[in-house]
Design a protein around this nucleic acid. Structure first.
Lengths: 193, 193
DNA sequence: TTATTTTCATACCGATCGGTACATAACTAG
DNA sequence: CTAGTTATGTACCGATCGGTATGAAAATAA
């Protein structure tokens, strides 16, 4: 069984480049030429290693969720409702305003990719959001320290509404410092001492 | 001075169709063919009446701001800070979840149109957002009923962060009823009785 | 070496993009 | 009527889109 010609590139770093590009330019705004240029490979190599542009995006989204976006899952392990919410909102600020990553959130960007051919990846992003919301709601439902009269489902949606808004503000170019102030004010309003 | 051949279409309703399409599909996701089909005219007629796709979008955005989005300006005329904020947030819910209009907000959508050729219209949307934020901040700075210790600039940004989040939730397909509940909870947190 | 397998590089595919040239149709001024 | 002006419909422009056919290059197995 012969081994064949070895790869001239590292699929791992190539996928990171693709994630960076999709994050910064969106699914529809990123062409195969952009991708091959940034990844340092040709179109046939890209196709052989990652499949269709759509399949490549799915892999990039996976990496995003389990890498820069992993805080969203980890935050649910915090001991108190307050700490869970704080971690989620602060994590959103840091994620969307990172100095070495594109501004904004890949997931929120993708929801707004409304072209006809972007429908499949949009569904991916929507499913991802739905999973995150269900997880947070479950966490709040099981909490013993939820303020009385609070509906877990609505609170979960409000927290995600705020993190979504943070992503928009970041994509619109607001600075990390400004968004941190907004996030802290939101937390004071949401979780009075 | 001869009159020439009369138009076979109403530019006003044609612009409304274009706005609908841009709102639903985004700037990059809407092709000239989509536009001419929805407006019921040909490409030369479109170009003669509205100019470039980019110029057409600018006109559609104007109509959006002075039409469905007019509440944002009008809300600032309310008597109390509470009422200003309530009108802004409730207005955002109604705007982005209208049963006869596309889900989401044209402005927020456009901010996430990150392709290279969409840069000019993105700048338009950003300028529009900045103007709205400045106007709200000025309104809060001049208010006499602002809760003590509140920074007008940060509060203005938080309100817009929440309305941005509402737009994302609507674009992601959440129902009007759900978002209304989230908005009411946000208002209770933001403006305790 | 020779055969086999896998990747790489170039060049190309049909389709669609935004925008336009050109001829014709429909109107008004005289 | 004729002349002048504006709008319409068709057909087309070069560029780019996502994706691929093809053949040479680079590895292993014998």
């Amino acid at each position: 069984m012969p081994g064949g010609r070895p790869r001239a590139f590292d699929p791992d770093v190539a996928l990171d480049r693709a994630l960076e590009l999709f994050w910064r330019q969106g699914y529809e705004g990123t062409s195969l030429s952009d991708l091959t240029a940034a990844m340092g490979i040709n179109k046939p190599s890209l196709y052989a290693a990652f499949g269709t542009k759509e399949q490549l995006f799915a892999k990039a989204l996976d990496r995003y969720v389990s890498g820069p976006g992993a805080f969203a899952r980890e935050a649910l392990a915090a001991a108190t409702v307050r700490e869970v919410v704080e971690r989620l909102i602060h994590g959103a600020v840091e994620l969307t305003t990172g100095p070495r990553t594109p501004p904004g959130c890949l997931n929120v960007n993708t929801v707004h990719a409304c072209g006809a051919d972007a429908a499949p990846v949009r569904e991916l992003a929507l499913a991802c959001r739905m999973a995150g919301e269900v997880a947070l709601r479950r966490r709040l439902e099981q909490a013993l320290d939820l303020p009385p009269g609070q509906d877990p489902a609505t609170l979960a949606r409000l927290v995600h509404t705020i993190t979504d808004g943070i992503a928009v503000q970041a994509a619109a170019g607001r600075t990390r410092k400004e968004i941190r102030e907004v996030a802290d004010l939101a937390l004071r309003a949401l979780l009075p001492a």
